[in-house]
Design a binder for these strands. Sequence first.
DNA 1: CGACGGTTTGTAACCGGTTACACGAGCACC
DNA 2: GGTGCTCGTGTAACCGGTTACAAACCGTCG
Lengths: 327, 327
Amino acid sequence: MRATIRDVAREAGVSIATVSRVLRDSTAVRPTTRDRVLAAADELEFVPSALGRQLAERRHAANGIVFPDLSGPYYAEVVLGYESVAAELGRSVLILSTRDRPDAESAVQAMAERCDGLVVLGRTVPDAAVERLVVRGAHVVMVARPPVGGADSVNARNRQGARALTEHLLDLDVRRLVFVGDPSTSPDVAERLRGIQEALPADADLQLHHVDSLDEECGAHVVGDYLTRALPDAFVCANDELALGMLGRLSAAGVDLPGRVKVAGWDDVMAARYAGLTTVRQPMRELGATAARLLDELISGSRSHPTHELLPTQLVVRSTTLGKVAP
Amino acid sequence: MRATIRDVAREAGVSIATVSRVLRDSTAVRPTTRDRVLAAADELEFVPSALGRQLAERRHAANGIVFPDLSGPYYAEVVLGYESVAAELGRSVLILSTRDRPDAESAVQAMAERCDGLVVLGRTVPDAAVERLVVRGAHVVMVARPPVGGADSVNARNRQGARALTEHLLDLDVRRLVFVGDPSTSPDVAERLRGIQEALPADADLQLHHVDSLDEECGAHVVGDYLTRALPDAFVCANDELALGMLGRLSAAGVDLPGRVKVAGWDDVMAARYAGLTTVRQPMRELGATAARLLDELISGSRSHPTHELLPTQLVVRSTTLGKVAP
DNA sequence: CGACGGTTTGTAACCGGTTACACGAGCACC
DNA sequence: GGTGCTCGTGTAACCGGTTACAAACCGTCG
């Protein structure tokens, strides 16, 4: 059995209070006593129990993060940014993927019991579940999702990015475009679609192509649907993976790109750069990092009113949208 | 303040022991008493404190996982497989990325205090640090890394996969090949290189091209180095991302592929399929899932002797290694 | 009717820390 | 020499659960 604070106290001939004081450096302890305690702790290889400490301090020193999935670069990057800041702030990170989990809500509730606050990403649990968390006093930050109840939120400027992208396409004489994605599953995606709609003039035509998932496989499938009928001037995809999947399939089918059709993605994942994909960059890692900071403010109590951060997006034009549409 | 078990006991007019019994369903409680307790718990919206429970049970009901990074599909998939099984087993998952962290070892030690066992992936902390964990009684499973001390391990059959890939290339008359990667940073990569060396006949030529990192950017850089000198017959990359980066740059440079040079990757990430990349598939998610199961056996004490699992790899031939080398 | 055995329930001691409060020692000051 | 202060340390009560053990209760049987 591992040594406890009482063992150390006995070994050093002091009380457990003194041991605790030495180890947390809280109040003055006579140097000779301190040395005795440290020697005893060293001798017994004492490591304080995280559980005992947490219970006494009534804090977990841990944050949670809930995401739908980790396949694909987007969520992974957000989690990475989050973990990195949380670690700096001395907090551990608990993860929870709602992927294939029918009991997502109860899993999130259970997680909330194990941390001081948590971040909820995109389409994971319903708003009502988040509200319940907040009502119960949990500290919650939403990412890539409109704020719920009194929770904080961090979002990218999706509308703005969508407008910039749309204007760029309009400059290339694009008039018939297809949005590939499912606005019903992700609030972020819905925002992007809305931004495009707002920027489009009346004489332009926007179709919505639903997909089941936002991965490369789906992108490739979408192309299949268009090989037998008329291609639009441009495809705008809900994320880069869809777009990359389309690129592969289009080039395999021998479609001239960007001459015959243009393709744009969203996120600016690393692969987009190497594929020459036009996209809207959003600061994925910074989304996670900002969420971690907001959460820390909530937990430490340095702020009580909800905050809603908007991070910039940026149009990145590459070779998949070069040149005007042929008349 | 939230209700505690004592509040519920008072409200129901029973002792805390009875409340605890009702809530954990351990021993027989008279139905009428049970109902009173449940009603009281409901009334007070009682949710048992995870910390109190954990301290009393002396278990965290949480597992850790340590990885170098989360950019790129490989680690993300392993983590996903791990989380999914851990959740099934009723355990939370703590993550720790050693990326850009100078104090990785102490961070891992701290994490070990907060969970019942942990998984250490690839190149993260030195062997000595893992040994210290094991000596201190921590349950440790290594993934993509040779076992250390008494720890369990889960690995893919790297040598076997490398041999299959090499034989495939030899069949195509490849004689001069370049391995792109850094065997010194990752034991997995070193194994792959060794497998190739073992399978190569004496008249073949294998060069090693070091890279700083295993991402697409590095892959693109590598190509730059070869555009001014002779290309080998084939590049074998330590992972798919390197290979994908090379593909993009090679095709931009107008190099005939697979005619002039062949390229192979490793992992079989989703993008590899759409890029037509020949690669060696390893079951990334299953690596994580297996680690979670082994860890559970260690923690539950159902097994005490170390186990070392080897998961299959599989050569996946696609268009980047089609046709024989031109004489 | 009392002994006996099984079922329910309560008491209290944990788990391993933190910390409010009290107490004693040492010192300066009047 | 007594008073009052500061400094260092110990006592004990927490934090919020689980659980060994004992006790109380109830029905049955001799």
